[in-house]
Amino acid sequence: MIQHVTEPVLEVHDVTVSYQRKPVLWDVDLTLPSQALVGIIGPNGAGKSTLIKAIMGLLPLNSGYVELFGKSLKEVRHRVSYVPQRESVDWDFPASALDVAMMGTYGQLGLFKRPGARERKLAMEALEKVGMQDYANRQISQLSGGQQQRVFLSRALAQDADLYLMDEPFAGVDIATETAIIELLRQMRETGKTVVVVHHDLQSAQDYFDWTILLNMRLVASGPTHETLTPDLLEKTYGGRLTELSKVSELLHKKNFPIRETKPVRK
């Protein structure tokens, strides 16, 4: 069940991605509608994070291309915002919550320019949106996991983008924070933004998302949530890997085969 939309916000066209010559995502081809809350769902090691990293240009593609708002990432970078996994950074870094939120304004600011009163205000507003204004001057290592997650979110908000890609924003977050975050994401959707979230709780996925992507090394489904979260498709996603796929991946890795004979053509 892979449903495509016309005039997509995001088009992932026949994308294959690998880590150290081992393909972890095979021929993913999907489009996403605008103004939607999208969940990426799948078991551990399914390539969920890999997919959004590939979309953000953080990983080289073995094949295919990604288009955002019908353009390449380079042309529309300021309209896309990324929230990495919380564990991807060292929280002992000497910075305050406000410092991190302010980093969201760096892209607009450009090289050499120093953030000033305007940037400080934007960052403060972003912190307020996630309810962290009282912690603005707190050193980030003194924040709880949920608070750190919210600081990351505020950094993305300070960017004021149209498409947000979030890697497990609910990991290690208590239920009250999770509810607050999802409420915020819904508000963002109402103002016309599209939010893509890597998630792995099936139960809540049903209420959270209006579009769901099911992933397990390959795309199992992409479509409106009520059509994708069916027992049949979930069985396909979670019912073990495709053995052949894993074996071929293993072979490519061991024998050092190129994953594609030619490099992907830039469209």
């Binding site: 953000m56 970078r77 990495p84 991807s88 870094f93 980093m103 760096y106 892209g107 090289l111």
Partner: peptide, 23 residues
């Protein structure tokens, strides 16, 4: 002095720095 904010960001979170288009 000139590239303080850029160095700060790439020292803290390199992946994010790339996504906002820093060289």
């Amino acid at each position: 002095l000139l590239l303080y904010k850029e160095f700060k960001l790439i020292s803290f979170d390199m992946a994010y720095a790339r996504t906002i288009g820093l060289p």
